[in-house]
Design a protein around this nucleic acid. Structure first.
Lengths: 223, 223
DNA sequence: ACATATTTTTAGATTTGTCTAAATTTTATT
DNA sequence: AATAAAATTTAGACAAATCTAAAAATATGT
């Protein structure tokens, strides 16, 4: 029964990839999608899926895609929890910037110690969101749910507080730093250009113009 | 040239084992000794030694034992440094007790990020010793050297400050906790029994009797 | 619906780290 | 110094995770 509790780093990486792909389209995940996400070959994915299926982490029928079982989802959530807690640690305690933490958290998320995870959580003050605004599941696997929307969906003259990014790649995060856009900032949409979808916004008492691409990767919460 | 910089967890574990065995007897390390230390088979050790030799971490002649090269020593020191810094983190920041930290640090020592190690060092206030009193090498690989001796070597009516343990196994550490013996405590040797080598000591204003076995696993620094 | 394209799986090979069992070398003993 | 004992290495095998190339299943387009 407890024989299957140990997971290798690789198994955990697959579970996490399936989780992230699964929450997006809310259906079974394609072999090729996993292969692309993990930068590996579809044949390798098939092999691993079989193994994870035998261990009870995913349900799988040949050619029909894969989805996480309850056990698999639970496992994925603990990995996501660890990843995001470590990101908070790196930013809050070690003064890393939000574009530097992902790669290190990819390593730290595999550290096996429930007590460590829980102590870290406590040490950080039970944070609900990571440095990119992504929610941190509780020990029980529950997310704080928020009613966030993309900035480009906000109507003219409406406001919101910046609560997250959709694209958390280093280039985008560095762009935001450079233009002094940070989580917690109060943003008012002043105007939208029909021509290119760009937005005129007020942020930190300054009025700036941002492209549609930027606006569609920034989450805000209505105030 | 830089092809050999990446090391697997397993390679790092071997390097660390060779390091620890090497500093003790200050000579080449035997295959069997490594096998025993790592709880593996001598044939596996031979295979790995070959690989580490090809990568330049150890120097090795068949049947003649193995020793770390400068590169290998440097690598070992960074692993030891990471291990001990994480131990300090766990005890100082996350309130772990000193008998719980070794296993977790065994995992954390493999995290690859020089910036993380250095930031952690800074965050912890550049500690010179881990929770067991073992010295933490600096980024440059230098130890703070101390003139510590075992408690059983202290003459009657002489004193010392408890600075470390020779045996850092959980049972011994728990024993010390139970009897309220901690690093930093001021200890005076009042008497030694010829019969069994046990010592009468004064610690924290209390006089207690400890066995030779205990005394020979406690390091003190002369005051 | 049929042909074609795409996706997925299979079969077989490779690398890493390990093992067992046998062979070899070194060390210890008498 | 010869022989026994111990340590070490070699040879061959295995499991995990990956790959390539080919085969099979599914999806797409007219």
């Amino acid at each position: 029964m407890f024989k299957f509790l140990f997971m290798t780093h690789s198994e955990e990486d697959y579970i996490k990839a399936i989780y992230h792909l699964g929450v997006l389209n809310n259906s079974t995940v394609a072999t090729n999608a996993i292969a692309e996400q993990m930068d590996t070959k579809p044949s390798s994915v098939t092999d691993m899926i079989r193994k994870l299926s035998e261990k009870g982490f995913v349900s799988y029928k040949k050619y029909q895609g894969v989805s996480l079982t309850d056990l698999g989802t639970q496992k994925a959530l603990t990995i996501v929890r660890k990843h995001r807690l470590w990101e908070v640690f790196l930013v809050d305690k070690l003064d890393f910037s939000w574009d530097e933490v992902h790669e290190i958290a990819e390593q730290l998320e595999h550290i096996k110690s429930e007590k460590l995870t829980d102590s870290l959580d406590k040490h950080l003050g039970y944070p609900k969101f990571d440095p990119h605004g992504d929610p941190i599941p509780s020990k029980a696997g529950v997310f704080t749910n928020t009613t966030k929307k993309l900035l480009n969906e906000v109507a003219i003259n409406n406001s919101g507080i910046c609560v997250g990014v959709k694209d958390s790649s280093a280039p985008f995060l560095k762009f935001l730093d450079k233009h002094e856009i940070a989580l917690g900032d109060y943003i008012t949409v002043l105007d939208k250009e029909d021509f290119d979808g760009s937005l005129q916004i007020k942020i930190n008492e300054k009025i700036i113009l941002i492209s549609h691409q930027i606006a569609s990767n920034l989450y805000v919460k209505s105030t």
